[in-house]
Amino acid sequence: MVYVTKIKICGLKRAADITYVNLLKPDYIGFVFAPSGRRVTKEDAKELIASLDKSIKKVGVFLNHSVEEVKVIAKVCSLDILQFHGDEDMDYCRQFQQNVWKSFRIKDANSFKEMEDYQVNGYLLDTYHKTQYGGTGEAFDWGLSSHLTRLNRDKCVILAGGLNPENVKEAIEQIQPAVVDVSSGVETHGYKDFEKMKKMIERVRKV
């Protein structure tokens, strides 16, 4: 089957999660090194990665870490992509050899202006919250996606925030992202749910 939008399952923290993704083959998986209920240490992530299917790309999620700390974790865990959710500027983003995805919290049309200051490999659109940098489980107004013309549609847009198997088709049709990023939308009681993950991936790849 031919499909365009890729999928990232974020917030893996258990051996069972690795078993699930090895069976389901999402394009990317994410390990959260930032403060979160899904946070893992570099040692935990390294152990989980040892059992991961090598065809799946590994993304590390960071929030205002020092450059040196990111480099150490990226090396220990052999990360393919670094995803920054904090106040990291373009000078910071230039410090790494890996591909960089930068998160932008979307509140209104003006939220897209900040992207113009960045030249990164991926632009992750997440939901604005006045006290949280991500992981709210809430979607922003996808109608704002018309402002993506400023960014140029040939850039890699990653859509996050409030996605689940029920709304992902609509999200893809409206925003046409390169990647959809899901975490809580495929969980039950805070843990990854195999059936929800399976349904999510199937729906993304049928759009």
Rank of each mutant, 00 (worst) to 15 (best):
N167F: 13
E88N: 11
T188L: 09
K130M: 07
S66G: 09
S111N: 06
L63R: 15
P26N: 03
Q176C: 11
V207L: 10
H147D: 06
S103M: 14
L12D: 05
K192H: 12
T19H: 11
M1D: 01
G185S: 00
M115R: 11
R38H: 14
Q119E: 06
W101L: 04
K8H: 03
F31A: 02
F140E: 04
K57T: 03
A74C: 10
N110Q: 11
L144P: 07
A109H: 14
E116V: 13
N22W: 03
Q119W: 05
V76R: 12
N121I: 00
S55C: 02
V120D: 12
G161H: 07
E173S: 07
L12G: 08
L124D: 01
V59Y: 03
Q83V: 14
K155A: 14
K13L: 07
K199N: 01
D80S: 10
R203Q: 01
I18V: 15
D108R: 09
K58R: 15
I18W: 09
A16N: 09
V168P: 10
E166S: 15
M1R: 14
R38W: 06
C93H: 03
L148T: 02
P165I: 03
S184H: 03
Y123K: 04
P165R: 01
F194D: 11
T131H: 05
D89S: 06
P177Q: 12
V168N: 14
K13M: 12
K198N: 06
K169P: 00
S103P: 01
P177E: 05
E43C: 04
V157M: 06
E69L: 03
G143Y: 04
K196T: 05
K155E: 14
F62D: 07
L163I: 08
S51R: 08
A139H: 07
H129R: 04
I106Y: 00
V2H: 15
K71L: 07
K206C: 13
P35R: 13
D53K: 08
T5H: 06
V182L: 15
D117V: 00
F104S: 00
V100C: 15
Y128G: 02
